[in-house]
């Protein structure tokens, strides 16, 4: 999947002239050397994670971290999926739902708001944008407790909404939405659509969203990851374990130090990263497609 994507880039380069020929051997070697070193740096902990996921609890503490010792990967995986009556699978599913639905709504609300801030001239829009940007500055972990107290007053805690509602409000989405809208939606087009008698809402849905689709995917990815990674909000909001997202579930296992389950935590971490990697790889196709479309101008 990744390999197919190299092709357009390469051809683009060749079309632009045979620049490849002009690169000196030493430049090429330095370039590839640095890139390979960087790749090693990024991969070392991943290698550790993979190796460690194959070890039993005892082997974990009696062997070198980069070398194999015994092979308990399948036992560990079974442990992960059977611990607490198989909650882990449920947690993965929850994470996908929270991050997927939450990310989609966050993107939609944020992009719509950013679009309005970019494309309509009205009094107070500077103030609104400023206030929203200000929201970015507040450490979100510190808002969680007041939010919890408010949510519990209206009976939202320990429900899916307690995680979803804060997740769909993403000031960063507005920030990006505004910039992308200003950049990729020409005013002339807006005017032309208006002259054709299209309503503002219709213009947004049928023209703006289409033009902004690469931006939409980008904002969605940002939102998706930030929801997937957030564990403090669900930690405070949820007490029913069957509602946990996977990051919180693993954190909970990790901090249950009275139980010897280091192998389960490590294997669970590895397994929880895999869906995200898959999401990236598959979504990357969209956003790269969007990118080239966006850079035509």
């Amino acid at each position: 999947m990744t390999l197919t994507r190299t092709r357009p880039q390469k051809t683009e380069r060749f079309q632009n002239g045979s620049a490849e020929l002009r690169v000196s051997r030493s430049t090429a070697m330095v370039t590839m050397g640095v890139l390979t070193l960087a790749a090693v740096y990024f991969l070392i902990p991943v290698w550790w994670l993979i190796v460690s996921a194959t070890k039993s609890n005892t082997a974990l503490f009696s062997s070198n971290g980069f070398g194999f010792s015994g092979f308990s990967l399948f036992d560990n995986i079974v442990d992960v999926f059977t611990k607490q009556d198989g909650l882990f699978g449920r947690w993965l599913l929850n994470s996908v739902l929270y991050a997927g639905i939450g990310g989609l709504l966050a993107t939609f609300l944020g992009v719509a708001c950013g679009y309005a801030l970019a494309k309509y001239n009205f009094r107070g829009r500077g103030v609104i944008f400023g206030a929203i940007l200000g929201g970015l500055l507040i450490p979100s972990a510190l808002l969680t407790v007041p939010l919890y107290l408010m949510f519990s007053r209206i009976g939202l805690v320990n429900t899916v909404w307690a995680v979803l509602i804060p997740a769909i409000v993403n000031p960063f989405a507005v920030y990006l939405g505004r910039i992308y809208a200003a950049a990729s939606m020409p005013d002339e087009l807006l005017e032309a659509a208006r002259l054709d008698g299209a309503s503002e809402i219709r213009i947004f849905f049928s023209v703006a969203l289409r033009l902004m689709s690469p931006a939409f995917v980008t904002v969605f990815l940002f939102s998706f990851v930030s929801i997937w990674n957030n564990f403090f909000l669900p930690l405070i909001m949820l007490s029913d374990q069957s509602l946990y997202p996977v990051t919180l579930g693993i954190f909970n296992w990790y901090t249950q130090t009275r139980e010897a389950n280091y192998n389960v935590v490590i294997t669970g971490s590895l397994l929880s990263v895999i869906p995200l990697v898959i999401a990236f790889l598959s979504l990357q196709r969209f956003w790269r497609a969007g990118l080239s479309a966006g850079s035509v101008k």
Binding site: V145, S152, L235, I236, Q241, N252, Q256, T257
Partner: peptide, 24 residues
């Protein structure tokens, strides 16, 4: 029953739920 983190790691959970008046 809900398993929580060991010791201090569980306090945010316990304290906030009591503060909100909906502690189990």
């Amino acid at each position: 029953y809900s398993p929580v983190s060991n010791g201090q790691d569980a306090y945010p959970k316990i304290r906030s739920s009591v503060q909100a008046g909906n502690a189990g």
